[in-house]
Amino acid sequence: MFSRALALTALALARVSSAATSTGGLTILAPGGDSLWWLFQQPNNIVWTCGESTFPQFTIWINNSDVTLLTAITAIISVEQNFNCNQGIDPNLLNVPLGTGYTIVMTNINNSSDVYAVSDPFEIKPLAIGYPPVSATPVDQGSATVSKGASSTGSSTGSSTGTAGGAAPTKSGAASRVLAASSGVLAAGALVGLLAVV
């Protein structure tokens, strides 16, 4: 019974529109759109409007409607604190292929069908392309958060925090193992649900 409920939740999340959405002041600033991509098997980051958000915490997922790239929506971070404003993603935490149409989804930690925000679709590109320039990421006016990305050829104007290479400090270690396990359960649950529907 639990796996069926999990599968139905995964299916509901998988149908989230690919157009950017936000509620409660939470908007995903990066990645998203043509100028804010991720690099394949490299540290990447997620930046959001923590200053305007009314949500103290949320779950972060990655999604793609192209099942040849991602078979099911996958949890990246089970509980992320809003006040962090950005989160680096360790390349060992998430193994997804090169491609277009990816979105980041933020949901209620207790009810994953309660979607808070969805990013614009973005691409995962090869390392040779390099990180997007810092100036490509919008600024969170409510908290004066500046992009945590970096460019190998560009430079930042104004204050910027985070590490070079386009990523803020990452979640790894035990947390990544827990998330990897939950992602596998979610993907398996989605498959069970799909088979039950057919």
Rank of each mutant, 00 (worst) to 15 (best):
Q141L: 11
A164E: 06
I124G: 06
A167I: 05
A5L: 13
V192Q: 05
I76M: 12
V134K: 05
I129K: 14
S65Q: 10
P97N: 11
T9N: 04
V146N: 04
Q87M: 08
T23M: 06
A75V: 13
N45G: 12
V67Y: 03
Q81R: 07
V79S: 09
D114F: 11
S53P: 00
G24I: 01
L186A: 13
S182P: 02
S151W: 01
A128I: 09
I104L: 07
D34Y: 03
W48P: 11
K171M: 05
S172R: 10
S155V: 03
V118H: 08
N44W: 03
S22D: 03
N86T: 14
T163L: 13
A136S: 09
G101M: 12
T145I: 05
A196I: 02
G154N: 08
L39P: 08
S18A: 08
R15C: 07
A117V: 04
P56D: 11
P121Q: 14
I77K: 08
N82R: 05
L69I: 13
E80K: 07
L127K: 03
T68Y: 11
N63S: 15
P169T: 03
N86L: 02
S3I: 13
L195V: 05
A181M: 15
V47R: 01
E123H: 09
S22Q: 13
F2D: 05
N64V: 07
S135C: 06
V198R: 08
Q42L: 11
I77E: 03
A164C: 02
A187W: 02
D114P: 04
T59Q: 06
P97Y: 04
P121V: 04
G193V: 00
L26W: 10
S17N: 09
V105Q: 00
I77W: 00
N111V: 11
G184T: 14
A196D: 14
A150F: 07
D34P: 14
G149H: 06
I76F: 03
I73P: 03
V198Q: 10
V192D: 12
